[in-house]
Amino acid sequence: MQTLIFRTATPFLTCLMLMFSVFVLLRGHNEPGGGFTGGLIAASAFAIHGIAFGVPVVRRALYFHPMAIAGFGLFASAVAGLPSLLFGMPFLTGLWSAPSFFGISVDLSTVMVFDIGVYLVVVGSFTSIALALEDREHD
């Protein structure tokens, strides 16, 4: 799409949306948000970028094939369920630890890994659909 305003605004928009998506993902446990919503935001960011600059640019920027990202997400989510087995708890039981970095306590958990997996699956799937649809505009 050849609108000047759109093309100028898009990089900023994409950056903002991606940052926001990560923010939404991480705050999800305590505030509205989470992997699914975050993933949708990131996917729309890529979709917009694709409309503005063409699909090849987005594909290059992503480096990995979006479906590979989704696959990794699914894998990560499944793996996140495994550690609890080591402690004799059912599959997918959440484990928590709160190590402190530079004096700030950060809650880390397998649940977070799981949610990141969800995020990646959503990003990957929706981005690949959107990109595939956009791609055909050019052929």
């Binding site: 999800g28 446990h29 989470g34 599959f91 959440g94």
Partner: peptide, 17 residues
């Protein structure tokens, strides 16, 4: 589950499977 957002906790923890 260490989370205040009930919806999200249900999604990722209670009903993780």
């Amino acid at each position: 589950a260490h989370g205040r957002n009930v919806v999200n906790v249900i999604i990722v923890d209670f009903r993780g499977l």
